[in-house]
């Protein structure tokens, strides 16, 4: 029973982690109408920046701050040079241009840092674990990720619903021209917004650094999952991204944890292991397809801006 609860918590934690990545994606996706495949690259840049800065300064907190700054700047630069030319284009052009960005970013990082994964460990303050159930120690750092996810969700929610900036963002996404006529610099606003999305991606990368290997290509593994999350939740919906992330995290984790054992009830252990592993890899895509077949615009549909 404790095992099940622990796995459930693992699933939730994984979901929150995915939400951290998906938050920025859904923001850019929903409000600006841009599919940004390079979101994974910003995730990678955040992790690299955190690893390098932590090594220099000796402080993980400082590393995170620097990662946020770096990914924000890179994000805004990308918007300024490339993305702003894509607002009026169809999704196909956006997919391809940002695909080109991935190739560029990966190769650039290889040239700059080589092929050896970088070192980044959990800061001492968050090292260790707490007993959540009798006999079950849970890593403090994973709990910290859950806390960060909740924090990000709150911040996003507040920005969008409570601030003037959020109001402009919402207005700008529904009717760009109208807002522009009212004297708001839409171009600047979108640059800043894209930067904000990049900051979220970089933050997710920096937080992930101590948990996963900081290496070239680390973003793409997460990117597809993040897209699944965003699409399940409904593009542009922060609430949807949160629900979608938790759903994907829990389904994926519980699938890995229990499917093989479940299958062993019906078939011989050897094939159960193989098929179980295969099925659990497919599980989230099955969930996504099922959701879209029933609700073609995701769980929390938002009217998406097309410019």
């Amino acid at each position: 029973m404790y095992l099940f609860l622990e796995q459930l918590l693992n699933g939730i934690q994984f979901g929150v982690f995915l939400f951290l990545i998906a938050a920025g994606l859904t923001l850019i996706f929903g409000i600006m109408g841009v599919i940004n495949l390079a979101h994974g690259s910003l995730f990678m840049i955040g992790a690299y920046a955190a690893a390098v800065a932590t090594e220099w300064t000796g402080s993980f907190a400082l590393g995170i701050v620097i990662a946020l700054v770096v990914s924000g700047i890179v994000g805004m630069a990308i918007e300024f040079v490339i993305i702003r030319r894509l607002y009026d284009r169809d999704h196909l052009d956006q997919v391809l241009a940002t695909f080109g960005l991935i190739l560029f970013a990966n190769e650039l990082m290889t040239i700059l840092f080589g092929r050896t994964p970088l070192f980044l460990n959990v800061p001492d303050a968050l090292n260790g674990s707490v007993e959540i159930f009798p006999g079950v120690q849970y890593p403090l750092y994973r709990l910290a990720i859950i806390a960060m996810g909740v924090l990000v969700a709150l911040i996003l929610f507040l920005i969008i619903t409570r601030t003037r900036a959020g109001m402009l963002i919402r207005a700008g996404s529904t009717n760009r021209d109208m807002v522009a006529v009212l004297g708001v610099d839409i171009a600047l606003m979108f640059t800043l917004l894209f930067g904000l999305g990049a900051v979220f991606a970089g933050f997710a990368g920096a937080m992930a650094g101590p948990l996963i290997s900081v290496e070239v290509g680390m973003g793409e593994q997460q990117l597809i999952l993040a897209f699944v999350v965003v699409v399940i939740g409904g593009i542009g919906s922060v609430r949807g991204a949160l629900v979608g992330a938790l759903l994907v995290g829990v389904v994926d984790t519980l699938g890995r944890a229990f499917l093989p054992d479940l299958l062993k009830l019906f078939m011989d252990p050897a094939s159960a292991d193989g098929i179980g592993a295969g099925l659990s890899s497919m599980s989230i895509y099955i969930v996504m397809a099922a959701v879209l077949i029933v609700k073609p615009n995701g769980l929390f549909p938002v009217s998406v801006a097309r410019h």
Binding site: N10, Q13, F17, R142, I212, S280, S281
Partner: peptide, 11 residues
């Protein structure tokens, strides 16, 4: 058996 290229091993 884990997924090829898996990143999260909590389960």
């Amino acid at each position: 058996y884990t997924k090829l290229g898996q990143t999260d091993y909590a389960a």
